[in-house]
Design a protein around this nucleic acid. Structure first.
Length: 386
DNA sequence: TCTGGGGTCCTAGGACCC
DNA sequence: TCTGGGGTCCTAGGACCC
């Protein structure tokens, strides 16, 4: 029987800010944007801020109404990534099988670590202590015989909590929960639960797998059937390689100027090309995403015989899709682009018509290297200077 | 309070091949 | 020419997660 610990850092971004800035301690810290910032949402609210009803994904403007005296910050991702690495390094000392699933969460397989760390409860206590002493952060732990239940357990006693589901008790544990605790059921699914009068996991437990599949769709129905029985959702088990890279930009005000939108697309392609180069992979499929002022969203994608070769190549493919899809006259709220179905570098021929393209490709690589070594140089296309 | 950015997975329909 | 299924690839849209 395997056993897992899910470690989840408490209000991570906000906690790092409080750690780095003593004057923020005990105050409501809201990371995401400054009060005047348009079209931004909260990434993380400290527990002090949550008392005012502020939570992640909430528009910053709304958070400001609820908590005008809060400390509002835009955040510093590179600092959070650095802190995340510190924490993961501490966690790695407790297991040989550590699987990080996001910047602030990880699974540890702790089967058979009893000899080293004692029973699971002792291990959890030691782990929490080590993280606190060596990184200054608190972590909540959930322990169970599979990752799915461990993940839910870690959310049961936040912050700085520890919740243990004994082996054999998974089904009883899950059945006791309200449907809101189901990880993987979001707003839409909850609406349906309400519609069907399903309040607890035990209510769902009483429905056959077939019936769940006809109500919620094949895959999600099967998932629900297993979830309320405390059975593993195999979702995070295999190591999934990323299959796409993308970037997007929301304009402060709806944009009607096509040239400006295409300049934004160029900027996005610029970013993506360098990320693609770093990933040592390639792609034949590009896509564009357009969100209009009314929040309706459209996307278009195209797969070519040839892999994307240069920044310009990507830009032209994305622009062609954009021009085909764009409903003229509609204000654009967001423009995005990306590459899908990433393959190992060299899997398909790049679009190289002649030496000119080859030359451009080499030039782009070279510029990227210079920019990495000397960030101050910031070499970029003339159209991207503003 | 109008709702970020970067991802993954699922569905459903159409094309095409055997 | 009416027509069948399975497999695979592609496309557009949506749900969900942190």
């Amino acid at each position: 029987m395997k056993y897992f610990l899910h470690a989840d850092l408490d209000a991570f971004y906000a906690s790092v800010e409080q750690l780095d800035n003593a004057e923020y301690c005990g105050k409501p810290v809201i990371v995401g944007g400054l009060p005047g910032d348009r079209r931004t949402v909260v990434s993380t609210a400290s527990y002090e801020a949550r008392r005012y009803g502020v939570h992640s994904a909430m528009p910053v403007a709304r958070a400001y109404e609820l908590c005008p005296h809060g400390v509002f910050l835009r955040g510093n991702m590179s600092r959070y990534r650095e802190k995340s690495r510190e924490v993961m390094s501490v966690l790695s000392e407790f297991t040989s099988d550590l699987r990080q699933i996001s910047i602030d969460e990880a699974f540890l397989e702790i089967t058979g670590t009893g000899r080293l760390f004692g029973p699971p409860a002792d291990l959890a206590r030691k782990l929490k202590k080590a993280v606190r002493e060596r990184t200054g952060l608190t972590v909540s732990a959930g322990l169970a015989s599979n990752k799915y239940v461990a993940k839910i357990a870690s959310g049961m006693s936040k912050p700085d909590g520890c919740f243990i589901v004994e082996a054999g008790g998974e089904e009883y544990f899950m059945r006791s929960l309200p449907v809101d605790k189901i990880w993987g059921a979001g707003w839409k699914a909850r609406e349906k639960f309400r519609k069907y009068g399903l309040k607890t996991c035990d209510d769902i437990h009483g429905i056959s797998e077939q019936r769940l599949s006809s109500l919620f769709g094949k895959a999600f129905g099967k998932f629900l059937y297993r979830a309320v029985r405390g059975q593993a959702a195999e979702a995070f088990d295999d190591t999934r390689r990323s299959r796409s890279i993308s970037a997007e930009h929301t304009f402060d005000y709806d944009m009607y100027d096509e040239f400006a939108v295409e300049t934004a697309i160029m900027k996005i392609c610029n970013t993506l090309m360098y990320r693609l180069l770093d990933s040592r992979r390639q792609s034949r499929t590009v896509f564009v995403k357009i969100r209009y002022g009314d929040f309706s969203t459209e996307s278009a994608q195209e797969t070519s015989e040839h892999a994307v070769g240069t920044m310009n190549d990507m830009f032209e493919r994305v622009c062609a899709l954009f021009r085909r899809k764009y409903r003229r006259g509609m204000g654009i709220r967001l423009i995005g682009a990306g590459l899908m179905n990433l393959e190992a570098d060299g899997a398909t021929p790049a679009e190289l018509f002649d030496f000119e393209d080859d030359r451009k490709k080499k030039l782009e690589k070279c510029i990227h290297e210079i920019n990495k070594k000397f960030p101050a140089a910031a070499i970029k296309k003339a159209r991207l200077i503003y």
